[in-house]
Every structure is written in structure tokens, then in C-alpha cells.
């Protein structure tokens, strides 16, 4: 372990790295299925897997608070919202042949090109950079709480206002129109 830390290399991965890669592959696979499956509800469920995988990666990067927030917000509420949305828009249950638009080929080309470019650039830039994950956890709840309420209070409060505005906006938008003014629509 010490030797590996002193001279780390791709061919001698640590345990954390192995776990990271395995979870990463699972996450990626879930994401790919999520964007390609023809069953809309399944896509939402696969998204849960992918987001959960990301949460595990956060844990592995010692950012535990973020990981739990990820689970709470994304897996807990966002996906539930999405499922609600699917149901409210009467999304078909089961395989729907027209889940993908005619733009698929172009989308694939752009996505592959973007992936290639990004991976190339990232690998080229960080080929020999290592994260020290053995020290004090970078994102423990205590640390995050202190830093959030000491240095980031103002943006935090601003975001609370933003959330309130979003709440009001969502209510206004999704409210059914009253019967008194049917001519408006």
C-alpha cells in the first residue's frame, strides 16, 4: 500500500480504485440503458441505479455528505417527480416504438465525438495526477456544515429564495385554469 502510494500506476490499482472502476462501469451501463430503453418507466428506474452509483462514487471520494444528499434529493425526490410526470402525461406503459426521435443518428455522432474529445483531453491532462483519499475525509458532514454556514451563507440564502420562487412558479404553471375564464385558452 505504501509502495503503491509512493509509485502509483495503472497496472497496480489500489482497492479503492478497483471498487471505483467497478461501480463506475455499473453506473455507466445503467445510464446507457436509461437513455436507450424503449420503456419509459424503466428508463426512470434505471436512472435511479445510475444516480445511486454516482452517490457511491461520492462516498469513495470521501464526500459523504454529498453522497447522502444525492441519495435523498435525486433518488428520493427527483426520480419520484419524474415518475409522477410520466404518469400525468399518460406515458405508455410497456415498449413504445417511438421513444427515440429521428435525430438519433446525429445525436449518436455528436455524443460519441463529445465523449472522444472529452476523454482524450481529460486523460491527456490528468495522466499523472493522484488524489490522496487516505487523509482526513474531505467532505464529512461536520466539515461541510461548518464551511457552508461560515463561508457560503449568502449564496445559501439566495438559493433558498430561488427554491421558493421555483415552488411558486411550479404551482402557478401546473394549476388548472379556473372555469371562469375558459376563453383564455
Amino acid at each position: 500500500m505504501n509502495v503503491a502510494a509512493a509509485h502509483p500506476g495503472f497496472l497496480s490499482p489500489t482497492g479503492v480504485e478497483i471498487v471505483f472502476v467497478l461501480v463506475g462501469v455499473a453506473t455507466l451501463a445503467a445510464a446507457v440503458v436509461s437513455v436507450t430503453t424503449k420503456q419509459l418507466v424503466h428508463a426512470a428506474l434505471w436512472l435511479v441505479v445510475a444516480l445511486g452509483g454516482v452517490a457511491v462514487e461520492y462516498l469513495l471520494l470521501t464526500a459523504e455528505f454529498i453522497a447522502w444528499v444525492q441519495v435523498l434529493i435525486y433518488v428520493g425526490s427527483v426520480v419520484v417527480l419524474v415518475l409522477f410526470g410520466l404518469m400525468l402525461t399518460k406515458a405508455p406503459i410497456g415498449r413504445s416504438p417511438d421513444a427515440d426521435s429521428g435525430n438519433r443518428i446525429a445525436a449518436l455522432a455528436v455524443a460519441v465525438a463529445a465523449a472522444g474529445t472529452l476523454v482524450w483531453v481529460v486523460v491527456d491532462a490528468f495522466r499523472s495526477t493522484w488524489i490522496d483519499v487516505d487523509g482526513a475525509p474531505q467532505g464529512s458532514t461536520k466539515v461541510t456544515g461548518e464551511i457552508l454556514f461560515r463561508h457560503w451563507v449568502l449564496p445559501f440564502e439566495a438559493l433558498s429564495v430561488l427554491l421558493l420562487a421555483a415552488l411558486v412558479g411550479a404551482i402557478v404553471l401546473s394549476r388548472k385554469q379556473s372555469r371562469q375564464q375558459p376563453g383564455e385558452r
Binding site: 463506475g24 465523449a115 493522484w130 488524489i131
Partner: peptide, 16 residues
């Protein structure tokens, strides 16, 4: 841990 792992994973997730 090698920084390239999370970076590449992020790039691939983004592309997906």
C-alpha cells in the same frame, strides 16, 4: 486514487 478515473467517468456520463 488516480484522478483520471472520476474524470473519465464524468466525461462518459456527460456524453451519455
Amino acid at each position: 486514487m488516480h484522478l483520471a478515473y472520476p474524470a473519465v467517468l464524468a466525461a462518459l456520463l456527460f456524453s451519455v
